[in-house]
Amino acid sequence: MGLLSKKDSKLILDPLADNNPITIQVLGICSALAITAQLKPSIVMAISVIFVLGVGNVIISLMRNIIPSKIRIIVQLIVVATLVIIVDQVLKAFAYELSKELSVFIGLIITNCIIMGRFEAFALGNGPWKSFLDGVGNALGYGIILIIVGFFRELLGSGTLFGFKVLGDPVEKTFLYSIGYENNGFMVLPPMALIVVGIIIWVQRSRNRALIEEN
C-alpha cells in the first residue's frame, strides 16, 4: 500500500467491525435510529457524519496544542456546530425534501456522541492525518450500521429500495406478492430500528465471541 501504511489502514478498518462505534463502543445511537426507515436518508445521514467527523477531527487535531483543557468541550461543540450548519445549509439548498424528512436529526449530529467521543479520545492526542483517517473510519463504521438497518427496514417494511419496488407491486400483485407475500408494516415503525440493531449485535457477537459482555 503506497498511500496508507499498515497502521493507518488499521485506523480505518478497525471501526468497521470489531471496534464499531454503534455496536461495540455504544456511541452515536441517538441520531442513528430515527432516520433509518428508508435507505436514502440513512445514506445521506452517513455521508453527513463522515464529512463532519473527518473534517472536525482534522480541525481539532490542528488546534490541539492551543485549546485550554478547561474549555475544550465548548470549543469542540462550536467546531461541530459550525460544520453541521454547513451540512444543513447544503442539504437545504440541494435536497430540500430530504432535509425536511431528516428534520431535527441533522442538527442532532452536534450531540452525536461519536463525534465528541472521537475528538476527546483521538484528535486531541494525534496528528491531523491520523485523526482524519480515524474520523473517516469511525464515521464509516457508523454509516455501515445505518445502511444495514435502513436496507432491511425499507426492504421488509415497504418492499422497496431507494423507492424502487424490488419485490414487485403490492397493488397489482406481481412477483413476490403474487404468491401471497405481504409487507411487514411493523418494520417501518420506530421500535423496529432498536430490535434490528439488537439483532445485528447478536450476529456480530456470535461470530466474534471475544466481544461478549458480562451480564
Binding site: T23, M192, A193, L194, G198, W202, S206, I212
Partner: peptide
C-alpha cells in the same frame, strides 16, 4: 451469551 449487555438492552427498549 452474544445478546448479553447491549444486545438485550436494545431489544427490551424496542419492546
Amino acid at each position: 451469551a452474544p445478546l448479553r449487555g447491549l444486545g438485550i438492552t436494545f431489544i427490551i427498549t424496542g419492546l
